[in-house]
């Protein structure tokens, strides 16, 4: 990972950062294996350069963005809480830029209502995508409503801890939506498509009763197999660090994003 410069941003909570070794060694990235240590261990042969993202669908000017163009957006450091659907959390200093700035460049049509994302498919470089056992359908796909995608908190991240992303964190470019469970933050993106239909999402296809399209962090809606009321903050000193804390609605970003869901039943749209 190379050094990456960024400007500070106002989106920075007064919370201790999760140690870099935990952020880069405790990952869910099933393309490299299902254990938390697999992504760091098995992503060595993945090639994050050259890279480009194709942006198409309901846009006036579809085009591709090379990684150099993405790096040329004004980059900010955004310190966000990250709440995994498995009831653990981290605080991560991302480097990136608002997705809205990229969407502006392709001029979404008035008919576009959703944004669909797709991860790269490279079975030769991603061992989880190859072989007899495939934990999920590939490529990994995710989606947001257009207003969620345009929200100022939603970023495309190119780095963390002052460096470009490591392969296990979704190099070279990934989505970060801090008020949603971590699995919405699709990694190693190659395609972004504007559409008028709610796009399919990988975990929803895999287990529709457990993972919804919205996947907003919500302590009042349990996962069928575990409670979402509390979370364990990673990297706070082993067993006795007192690291279990209450989970906040929208992961603590309710003031900024709750209005997006005004009038919606968030229990039905989990």
């Amino acid at each position: 990972a190379a050094a990456l410069k960024a400007n500070p941003s106002p989106f920075s909570p007064d919370e201790a950062l999760t140690p870099e070794k935990d952020v880069t060694n405790y990952n869910n990235f099933y393309e490299f294996g299902t254990d938390k240590g697999d992504p760091a261990a098995n992503s060595g042969s993945f090639k994050p350069t050259p890279w480009s993202i194709k942006v198409d669908g309901m846009v006036a000017s579809p085009r591709e963005f090379g990684i150099e163009e993405l790096m040329a957006f004004p980059l900010e450091e955004r310190i966000y809480r990250m709440r995994c659907v498995e009831a653990w959390s981290m605080v991560i200093p991302w480097i990136g830029f608002p997705l809205a700035k990229l969407l502006d460049k392709v001029e979404p049509l008035g008919s576009a209502k959703y944004v669909a994302f797709e991860t790269v498919l490279r079975p030769d470089q991603m061992p989880g995508q190859a072989g007899f056992f495939q934990p999920l359908q590939w490529p990994y796909v995710e989606g947001l409503r257009l207003d969620e995608a345009r929200h100022p908190l939603t970023i495309l991240a190119l780095g963390l801890y002052g460096k470009t992303l490591q392969n296990q964190n979704g190099a070279p470019v990934r989505l970060v939506v801090p008020w949603k469970y971590g699995f919405k933050g699709i990694k190693s993106i190659v395609k972004i498509t504007l559409t008028d239909k709610q796009p399919p999402t990988t975990w929803n296809i895999s287990a529709p009763t457990e993972y919804g399209f919205y996947a907003n962090v919500n302590p009042a809606v349990d996962h069928p197999r575990w409670s979402q009321a509390t979370e364990n903050r990673i990297g706070e000193g082993g067993f006795f660090g007192g690291s279990r804390r209450k989970t906040l609605p929208f992961n603590g970003y309710g003031e900024e994003v709750a209005s997006l869901y005004a009038g919606m039943d968030l229990k039905a749209n989990f």
């Binding site: 060694n25 405790y26 240590g37 653990w88 990297g235 082993g238 067993f239 006795f240």
Partner: peptide
């Protein structure tokens, strides 16, 4: 390992 903070990530769950 867990008590001394050497289990990676979510130490309690790992244990």
């Amino acid at each position: 390992l867990g008590a001394t903070g050497q289990l990676p990530g979510d130490a309690i769950k790992e244990f």
